[in-house]
Simulated assay, not measured.
Amino acid sequence: MSKITVTRLYKEDINTFLPLVQELMEHTVEENLLKVRFTEMFEHRYQCRGIYIEGELAGVFGLWFAVRHYAGKTCEVDHVYIKPEFRNRGLGKQVFQWIYDYARAEGCETSELNTYVHNFPSHKFYMNENYVIKGYHFLKKL
């Protein structure tokens, strides 16, 4: 099992992490619009992290921090993506242990996330991490 290094990425690093987010999203959002959105996200309670193995970017994820009436202070994990050539090596477990440790240090009581309905491997992974399905995520274009 390779040891990971988790590094904070900033809006200036957008060209580093954006291609990985686009892979996760299957390029459903135009690149320039994604750049605008990520620039704005950094102005809120959002952090981006790169997952590195021996100096090579192997994946990316985001974190949102909030206080919710049903969950207390929470860390919402967003757009977790590990490049295919780095999968099935135990990196996900390492990444999520890093997230739990970091979130606890930030005073979080809970961790939550959304995942695409068709991403069955992620469902299995998150359930093995003791996440429970608490509802459905609805989206309406305005």
Rank of each mutant, 00 (worst) to 15 (best):
F86I: 03
G107S: 02
Y46V: 09
K73P: 02
P121H: 06
P121T: 05
E85H: 14
N119A: 11
G92N: 10
Q97F: 10
V80I: 14
K3L: 14
P84R: 08
D101G: 05
V117S: 11
K73I: 01
I99K: 01
D101F: 11
E26R: 15
C48W: 01
E85S: 07
I53L: 07
V21C: 09
H79Y: 12
E43Y: 04
H69T: 07
M25Y: 09
V60H: 10
S111G: 07
A105T: 04
E23W: 00
G55K: 00
R8A: 08
C75L: 00
V21R: 06
K3T: 15
N114K: 10
T115Q: 05
I51W: 03
F65S: 03
L34M: 12
V60K: 10
V60F: 14
E112P: 00
V117Q: 07
F65H: 04
F125T: 04
F42E: 06
E23P: 06
F38E: 03
F61R: 04
H123P: 04
L24S: 05
E26S: 15
I53V: 15
V29D: 11
C48Y: 04
K134T: 13
F120L: 14
T28P: 02
E109S: 02
S111D: 00
Y70S: 04
T115V: 02
H79C: 13
S111I: 03
M127D: 15
G72Y: 01
H27D: 15
T110K: 06
I82R: 00
Q22D: 15
M25H: 15
Y52F: 12
L91G: 00
E112W: 05
H44L: 12
W98Q: 06
E85C: 10
W98M: 10
G50K: 12
G55Y: 00
I133M: 12
E23T: 07
T7M: 15
K83C: 06
L24K: 06
